[in-house]
């Protein structure tokens, strides 16, 4: 059971209160009509899927209901940081550098 700190509720809660939302920082093209199929396909379907630190979206679905972002090591499943949606991806210190 992951214990996840919701950056809005400022409390650590069990994973079952949350819903995983896939890769974070995937920005929808600002002008959709100016983008070709390949770029849309990249936006919709292609993912980093990293073995190591992943930035991912979660939603505190059974709490405040808000989306936030999280840095998690996908090998150890340790959570390195959580931060509000819209905030830039934090840079990690030595512990998160792997």
């Amino acid at each position: 059971m992951l214990l996840i700190r919701c950056p809005y509720c400022a409390t650590e809660r069990p994973e079952i209160e949350f819903r995983h939302g896939g890769q974070a920082h995937v920005a929808r093209p600002a002008d959709p009509s100016a983008v070709d199929d390949a770029a849309w396909s990249e936006y919709l379907f292609f993912r980093d899927n990293p073995k190591g630190v992943a930035a991912e979206r979660w939603r505190h679905v059974h709490g405040c209901g808000r989306f936030f972002n999280c840095l998690r090591d996908t090998v150890s499943d340790r959570i390195l940081a959580t931060y509000p949606a819209g905030a830039p991806r934090p840079t990690l210190g030595a512990e998160g550098a792997r």
Partner: peptide, 13 residues
């Protein structure tokens, strides 16, 4: 519900 919340929070904050 998820769709509305996602569009509001992530796409149209």
């Amino acid at each position: 519900h998820l769709h509305f919340d996602f569009q509001r929070q992530a796409r149209k904050p």
